[in-house]
């Protein structure tokens, strides 16, 4: 894979994303929600006595866990499938560029666009909190920004895999929505159901959680804020007992990276053999 050609495709993807109404709407909503949650958090902090950054980070973690997968799954889903459908992928692949360069360029370009949106949203929220309240754990807030980008990398890879597998815009968007429901809500409910019906051990529940990047990010983000067991949940408590706080954090960060690499690799395996109409 040549870096120059991959960077050219990535830059083209960033330009296209910035012009896409869906991306602009998502980025604007993310910015408004980040600022809104931060300011609401600050208002509550004055009454409860919690420090500014801690409360804001907790609020923004939930926003990131809901919003980042929604945006990245749909953007990733539309990425290859949209260009396959409108014929621009055939024009691109007729140039002296390999499929790997196109695939990675598109992924990295979209990740760059999403990361910029996260930096802008969380960055402005951080500035607002710093200016109005300060105090609390600013490092956890910075870790949250990194975690949101890591989560975006994993779920964007899942979206890209769906795009390569389903091949049409409508199917990819539908698949992205189902995947979002499954990762954000279905996984929790499924685990609870399984744990109840099959009497799963905490170790088995922990292993199931390691399959879901949203759950990995939830526990990792919570660990950055607090190590109180009543907040961490069964997965966090079991992992912390097994590995300690640092060990669990490392394992979850590695699991997020492996999720991203695994989904990206599966998508590439499909795309390299795909028929381009």
């Amino acid at each position: 894979m040549r870096i120059r050609e991959t960077a050219l495709v990535a830059a083209r993807e960033v330009r296209q994303a910035v012009r896409s109404r869906w991306f602009v709407l998502s980025a604007a909503s993310f910015l408004v929600l980040s600022l809104g949650l931060s300011l609401l958090g600050l208002a509550g902090a004055q009454r409860s006595g919690l420090a500014g950054f801690d409360r804001t980070t907790a609020g923004l973690l939930n926003l990131a866990l809901l919003f980042v997968p929604l945006v990245t799954l749909s953007l990733g889903g539309l990425g290859l499938a949209g260009e396959l459908e409108d014929g621009s992928l055939a024009v691109l692949l007729a140039q002296p560029v390999t499929r790997t360069e196109v695939y990675m360029g598109k992924y990295l370009g979209l990740l760059g666009a999403v990361a910029s949106s996260i930096f802008t949203g969380f960055g402005l929220a951080g500035l607002a909190v710093g200016a109005l309240a300060g105090g609390g754990n600013a490092i956890a807030f910075v870790q949250l920004v990194g975690l949101a980008v890591l989560l975006a990398a994993a779920t964007l890879a899942v979206g890209t895999l769906l795009s390569a597998a389903l091949g049409s815009r409508a199917k990819a968007v539908g698949g992205a929505f189902v995947a979002w429901l499954a990762l954000v809500y279905g996984s929790d409910l499924g685990t609870i159901g399984l744990a109840t019906a099959r009497a799963l051990t905490p170790g088995q529940v922990f292993a199931l959680a390691l399959l879901n990047p949203v759950e990995q990010a939830r526990v990792l983000g919570t660990l950055a804020l607090t190590s109180r067991p009543e907040v961490l949940g069964v997965v966090g408590i079991f992992g912390q007992d097994l590995l300690g706080t640092n060990g669990l954090s490392l394992l979850l960060a590695a699991a997020l990276i492996i999720s991203a690499a695994g989904a990206l690799g599966c998508g590439w395996a499909l795309f390299r053999k795909a028929v381009v109409p």
């Binding site: 083209r12 296209q16 012009r19 409108d86 014929g87 621009s88 024009v91």
Partner: peptide, 20 residues
């Protein structure tokens, strides 16, 4: 493929350049 395609100009039936 890179060397082969570098020697080719392609005009598709339905040209598409995205939002460029």
């Amino acid at each position: 493929p890179i060397a082969a395609r570098a020697r080719v100009g392609y005009l598709p039936q339905r040209p598409c350049f995205g939002d460029a």
